[in-house]
């Protein structure tokens, strides 16, 4: 099963938010590890059998004057079993 999450940058950390959790880390590797460990350890997510997290970037991070030029930063997918 897949979990839909939103990712953005608060100026210092990458932040991922989904139903019921919010995780921060300065680097993406660390962020992925935190997300994976939280999902694996939380019974709520474990019961749902989450295997993949789709992270959609929140364009509100990008200043409004810039959004008129490009309206997509990135989306990323994390396969939880492969995160080390």
């Amino acid at each position: 099963m897949e979990l839909q999450a939103t990712i953005w940058h608060d100026g210092k950390n990458w932040v991922v938010e989904a139903e019921g959790f919010k995780v921060k880390a300065s680097e993406l590797d660390e962020l992925d590890r935190k997300v994976a460990s939280l999902i694996k350890s939380d019974p709520y997510f474990a019961n749902k059998g989450i295997r993949r997290v789709n992270m959609f970037f929140d364009m509100m991070t990008i200043p409004q004057w810039m959004r008129q030029y490009m309206q997509h930063y990135f989306s990323r997918i994390i396969e939880l079993e492969e995160v080390k």
Binding site: F57, T61, I62, P63, M66, Y69, M70, H72, Y73, F74
Partner: peptide, 24 residues
């Protein structure tokens, strides 16, 4: 292509948004 490429590339290489913002 200027700002659009800077934003697209920033996202592609997973740069912190501030890099794209400065270039833009």
């Amino acid at each position: 292509c200027g700002v659009s490429a800077a934003v697209a590339t920033g996202g592609a290489v997973r740069a912190k948004p501030v890099v794209s913002i400065m270039v833009s």
